[in-house]
């Protein structure tokens, strides 16, 4: 009789362990993982590393990034209250420019990939909005916490902000843009953006 009770204790503990351990990855995580895996595959493909393939490589990375990010949503948030003051044509122009800037930024970061581990740590969904938390473990033993803020658009989860170690990209650009716009004008901002994007 005593044995039976003793047997039940570790069994019970095991059960709770198993329940606590099983974390279910939902659709947002799957979407982010898909894009990340695609990017890693492109970057670590030895056939794409040659110099004459550089343009093709960049194009593919752009494509993969484009699929996952919602430039419109991002532009809207970075311009904040100035968004409403813009005409539709200006909006389209800005979205294009901002998208190009982000692609460039992302491209530079992805190009530097050297076998870092990507761990999917958490996910949270609240209605249309979701957050996927990713931990990047570098070879130098440092951990970088990355949060993707996503919005569900027709079943597809699109990112509208990334925050790296608590620094939100959208917030950061919003501060820069509003600082420039209060100093000079929207036209000046567009000029600066164009200069940045065209400088290869």
């Amino acid at each position: 009789m005593v044995c039976k009770y003793f047997l039940m204790i570790p069994l019970f503990i095991f059960m709770t362990l198993i329940i606590a351990g099983s974390s279910m990855a939902g659709k947002p995580t799957e979407d982010v993982r898909e894009t990340t895996d695609k990017l890693i595959a492109i970057v670590s493909d030895p056939a794409m590393k040659t110099s004459d393939m550089a343009a093709e490589r960049a194009r593919r990375i752009r494509e993969a990034v484009d699929e996952r990010f919602d430039w419109r949503e991002m532009s809207k948030r970075t311009l904040a209250r100035h968004w409403k003051e813009r005409s539709d044509r200006e909006k389209e122009e800005f979205i294009d420019l901002f998208g190009m800037l982000m692609e460039r930024t992302y491209l530079d970061r992805v190009e530097g990939y050297s076998g870092e581990k990507v761990l999917y740590v958490g996910e949270r969904v609240d209605g249309k909005y979701g957050i996927v938390v990713v931990k990047i473990v570098t070879k130098k033993d440092t951990e970088i916490l990355v949060k993707y803020k996503l919005k569900n658009k027709g079943g597809e989860w699109l990112a509208y902000d990334i925050s790296i170690q608590g620094v939100s990209l959208v917030n950061n650009y919003r501060k820069q843009f509003s600082s420039i716009m209060t100093r000079s004008s929207y036209e000046d901002l567009v000029k600066k953006l164009k200069a940045k994007v065209e400088k290869e």
């Binding site: 530079d108 608590g166 620094v167 917030n171 950061n172 501060k175 820069q176 600082s179 901002l189």
Partner: peptide, 15 residues
């Protein structure tokens, strides 16, 4: 990546 590096750094530090 920044348009205004000074503001970008200031905000990144703050965040």
């Amino acid at each position: 990546a920044a348009i205004d590096p000074y503001v970008a750094l200031r905000d990144a530090y703050y965040q």
